Simulated scan of single mutants.
Amino acid sequence: MPLTFTLDPPVTPGLRDGILELWVDVTEAGGAVGFVPPVTREDVRPELVRQFVAMEERRSRLLVGFDEEGRVAATAFLTLNTHRLMTHWIWLYTVMVHPRHQGKGYGRDLLAAAERAARTLPGVEAIRLTCRGGLGLEGFYGSCGYKEVGRVPAAIRVAPGDDRDDVIMLLPLT
């Protein structure tokens, strides 16, 4: 059954807890979403609060995919650029699909929903994201229409002696 996507859902305690659970579960399963395992809700909570602040300040939008049981199954943050010379593109951050739903095409559905949402934003001509090299993510994003436009070698230190490239991807909307 497909996910139901909602842009800017009301932030309730249930939504907050669902995103925290998702973020921890994705990280624990090896997902490249800003942390490395082991991670707890308390580790993730400050980053989620920063995202909620950006939403309150209207600098970021939250896209949530709910499963058939109404649980948070996928998320992404669409973040506006505040630099006056870069307002024609947005960032896509923290793209996550819960491990129990991976392999069902929901990642592609999430990216398609993010693209639809971005197309509703005035003046936005592209979506930019970065991903951690060494996991094949650039291949996945490439299959969804994103193009690799840059790479910073060894920019992400996962652990001592384990540095990964920061891969920059772009999806033109025009």
Rank of each mutant, 00 (worst) to 15 (best):
G107H: 06
G107F: 05
G107W: 06
R108S: 01
R108W: 06
D109F: 00
D109V: 02
D109N: 07
L111V: 12
L111M: 15
L111W: 05
L111D: 06
L111C: 10
A112N: 02
A112Q: 08
A113N: 01
A114P: 02
A114E: 02
A114S: 10
A114T: 01
E115G: 09
R116W: 13
R116H: 15
R116K: 14
A117S: 05
A117Q: 03
A118R: 05
A118L: 08
A118F: 07
T120E: 14
T120Q: 11
T120S: 09
L121I: 02
L121H: 01
L121P: 03
P122D: 02
P122L: 07
P122M: 00
G123I: 04
G123C: 03
V124N: 01
V124W: 07
E125F: 08
E125G: 10
E125H: 12
E125C: 12
A126H: 06
A126I: 09
A126F: 05
I127C: 14
I127W: 11
R128I: 14
R128V: 15
L129R: 14
T130N: 13
T130D: 12
C131R: 00
R132M: 14
G133W: 06
G133F: 05
G133T: 09
G134C: 00
G134V: 04
G134L: 03
G134E: 07
L135Q: 12
L135T: 11
G136R: 10
G136I: 10
E138C: 10
G139M: 11
F140Y: 10
F140A: 08
F140M: 11
F140C: 09
F140T: 10
G142A: 15
G142V: 13
G142K: 11
S143N: 11
C144T: 07
Y146W: 06
Y146N: 04
K147M: 13
K147G: 15
K147T: 15
E148R: 13
E148L: 13
V149H: 08
V149K: 07
G150T: 03
G150L: 05
R151Q: 12
V152W: 05
P153T: 12
P153N: 13
A154Y: 03
A154T: 05
A154W: 03
A155H: 03
I156M: 08
I156G: 09
R157F: 07
V158P: 06
V158M: 04
V158K: 00
A159W: 10
A159R: 11
P160V: 07
P160A: 06
G161C: 04
G161D: 09
